[in-house]
Design a binder for these strands. Structure first.
Lengths: 340, 340
DNA sequence: TTGAAAGCGCTAACAC
DNA sequence: GTGTTAGCGCTTTCAA
């Protein structure tokens, strides 16, 4: 234990300490091939005694195999992505694969850099949020020769496989439900993020379906920055001051929706009688509010799991996914803020 | 561009395509050493044309340098950790270092496995949450020979450097403030996580300071699972049914505190007159609730930044941190739920 | 400014 | 069962 040599330990050290060849030590440490119980024990003891930690860099180079899966997401602060991660982890935990996360901050150029960085570690697969990428990113992914799963969005052409929901459809379905419930004067509150393609697609689908019903969005507003809950309250107040006629507000996510709900509840509004509300995501966190916001589950966990399963199947047996696009169908949850 | 050879590209391919030696190609791609502008251009063009992505595995093995920093946290679903991550990233972004995250789910054995896994990639440093680890983990960290920063908690003996707050002190200070405000019948609601050492230390400090003031916790309850917001409401209801006398509830985190606050607010309680509330964390997310919960900022972002700075200084110039323990001093925020 | 040779620490493939 | 040999793709070092 008196160790002041900063040189990291190598297989050779374990080999010498145990009197077993490097090759056999390697076999023991990886549980590969037949090794007698006796030498096995000797090696394990020596390794533990020395505190040897294998060098995966050397191992990966020699074996040409890396057990990492690159997971590229826009942000960790939006609860949506940790939940997708949880789905991915839950599947990969039972395999030899390990997720490694990269964050893009919703910036395509950063996505490109992160992707380049991650690919340079030669991962066994890539799971990447969204279906829109720069040309350079797409080229890298195609050239990588590894399985690529684009997640969360199916409105587009996947590079390899896409797993997600159609946000356009989600927007349409919510609009349809709102119209069916008899609301007519509809407002929209969203985030000011030109690069949040999924939010935009929802909005597009939403207005499109309203149009089919002969209804136009009466007022809309986009925010950026700040606490979503606070912004939701504040913007709800503003939009209703401007358009007191509104009988429904569709929020681009549950967080600002919850802010609006709390505010209106506080004001003693009759929800969903005089005014209805709906968000998007199905954030579990919000269970426990005085009233339950209508929303649509983005199926984050399912998406994460499916994506991981596809990668694992490819790595394990080379099985490609049966289809290029795997689309989940989220259902509306009416909560207490949308009439049936 | 007609590429159906799945073999990944190597330096040699770029070398051949550009007619420049591998060595010089390597120099260009790393911006090392003097290379004439002419060859430089040739190489860059060839690399881009081919879509070459360097192999960091080989690079790392040859150079014995890895630009990764292992960041080991208990969970990504607790907003606390993404915020620490953001602090870390903000600093590392301006360096050549890259964070790589591992999640332990608050399990010491999993921490051990994750640590082993990450160390086997020979990162340049480790940032790890908490100051309690298994003996094996501590041994690995010590033997690794790389800078190690334990974050979030300073109540203990660091392996190398610790950056955080004293949760014991945090609990004490909250207790003192509560007593000073004149509350006397105090309840506590927390999470049932024996391995959340920081929550436990806060509770210990809290009861200790109350005891000094001659006060004992009148009722306490621990929950596990479910939405924190919902649990906060539910448990608040229960504890008050059991002990209607309570004039203060201290929550082990802001999320269940917010649940309690929403519930009591709904009930029309006089807060902070008849009953006071306080949480812990300073979760930005909660700005925008009808009333602001008293809390104490855990200084997550500062801690993340400081930890990253320490690692970078060590990697860059070998500068060790000036002190082994760097303790931040969070201040109480009284909000609307704690009398002054 | 450029190139050639010699590894980095490990594992695939093949002997024994 | 165990050992030997020859790389994996890059960078270090030294020579030109």
């Amino acid at each position: 234990m008196a160790d002041d040599d900063p040189r990291p330990l190598t297989l050779r050290d374990v080999s010498e300490a145990s009197g077993v060849s490097e090759m056999t030590v390697s076999r023991v440490l990886r549980n590969r091939g037949d090794v007698s119980e006796a030498t096995r024990k000797k090696v394990l003891e020596a390794a533990k005694e020395l505190g040897y930690v294998p060098n995966k860099i050397a191992g990966a180079l020699a074996s040409q195999r890396v057990n990492l899966v690159a997971v590229i997401i826009p942000s960790m602060r939006n609860m949506v992505f940790p939940e997708v991660m949880a789905g991915i982890s839950s599947v990969l935990e039972d395999t030899e694969l390990q997720p490694v996360v990269g964050v893009t901050d919703y910036e395509p150029e950063k996505e490109e850099r992160v992707l380049y960085e991650m690919l340079s570690w030669r991962p066994s697969g890539v799971i990447i949020a969204g279906i829109e990428h720069t040309e350079a990113s797409k080229a890298m992914l195609k050239a990588s020769g590894i399985p690529v799963v684009e997640i969360m969005d199916t409105d587009g052409t996947p590079i390899d496989t896409a797993v997600g929901i159609s946000h356009r459809r989600a927007g349409r379905e919510m609009a349809t439900a709102i119209l069916k419930a008899g609301y007519q004067k509809i407002g929209f509150l969203g985030t000011k993020m030109p690069l949040d393609f999924r939010a935009r697609k929802r909005f597009e689908g939403f207005t499109e379906a309203l149009a089919k019903g002969g209804v136009e969005v009466m007022a809309q507003e986009f925010y950026s920055g700040g606490s979503a809950l606070a912004k939701g309250a504040e913007m709800t107040k503003e939009i209703l001051e401007r358009e007191p006629e509104l009988d429904f507000i569709y929020y681009s996510n549950d967080m600002i929706g919850a802010g609006g709900l709390l505010y209106l509840h506080e004001q003693g509004c009759n929800i969903p009688g005089d005014i209805g509300l709906a968000g998007f995501n199905g954030i579990e966190l919000l269970q426990g509010l005085p009233r339950k916001l209508a929303t649509m589950d983005a199926m984050r966990s399912e998406i994460g799991r499916k994506a991981a399963e596809i990668i694992w199947a490819r790595v394990e047996n080379g099985d490609a996914a049966p289809e290029k696009i795997i689309e989940f169908s989220p259902k509306i949850s009416y909560g207490d803020t949308l009439r049936r």
